[in-house]
Design a protein around this nucleic acid. Structure first.
Length: 206
DNA sequence: CCATAGATTGACT
DNA sequence: GTCAATCTATGGA
């Protein structure tokens, strides 16, 4: 396929993802998620993420009670996507971390458009500005994600990958949003200067 | 088997 | 502010 319009520099390789989940989560903010599909080129800059740990380590994680049909990819090769359906209708994107066999994933909660705004608008029913992708369900819809994205490999997929992007100067750490267990754990990271961060600008933890 | 909660969003009072 | 939409996983009868 024609790769001439992929952004310059190299995409992030397997080693980027094959690290502790919290380390990868912090490192994901600012990175560019690049999609080069039939619809055209879409680039978004990740501005908010949440880490979810593995079996027995994190009561809020889908992997807490071990493997299930749904969470299998959380145990798979790092760099793949774990996609699940939230509340029966939203597709949430997670980046799988840790070595194969060990669960861990980072939920992509929000991103700001860099390229391909018109495509994002089409997928988001005409919404504009921050409403395009300032939440995990919104981001999934904006990227055109479906459950068939579960297991896609960001390292080798010809149409989807992660690129170095622009890491923010400062990173803010807070508790996670929308969960009821371990809400105080400092596992949410966002770019404090971005207007695309999702609701509840939670006060920073001390 | 049945009930309920959930890593959410959008429409509406 | 309230609440429905709609599917999976889990826990109790």
């Amino acid at each position: 396929m024609d790769r001439s319009r992929w952004p310059r520099r190299q995409r992030l390789g397997r080693a980027f993802y094959d690290r502790p989940t919290l380390e990868v989560a912090r490192d994901l903010v600012g990175r560019h998620l690049v999609q080069r599909g039939p619809a055209g080129l879409v680039v978004v800059r990740i501005v908010e993420v949440e880490a979810y740990l593995g079996e027995g380590q994190d009561p809020a994680s889908h992997a807490h009670r071990g493997r299930t049909p749904r969470n299998l990819n959380m145990f798979e090769t790092p760099g793949r996507l774990y996609v699940y359906v939230s509340y029966g209708l939203h597709h949430c994107l997670n980046v799988v971390c840790e070595s194969r066999g060990t669960a861990g994933a980072v939920l992509l909660r929000a991103a700001e458009p860099v390229e391909g705004v018109s495509i994002l608008q089409l997928r988001r029913a005409g919404r504009r500005g921050a409403e395009l992708s300032n939440g995990p369900g919104k981001l999934g819809q904006a990227m055109g994600a479906g459950i068939e994205w579960n297991g896609r490999d960001l390292v080798t997929d010809p149409e989807l990958g992660l690129w170095p992007g622009e890491v923010p100067g400062r990173l803010m750490t807070t508790g996670r949003i929308g969960i009821s267990q371990a809400i105080e754990w400092p596992f949410r990271f966002h770019d404090p200067h971005s207007a695309w961060v999702s609701r509840g600008r939670v006060a920073p933890l001390t």
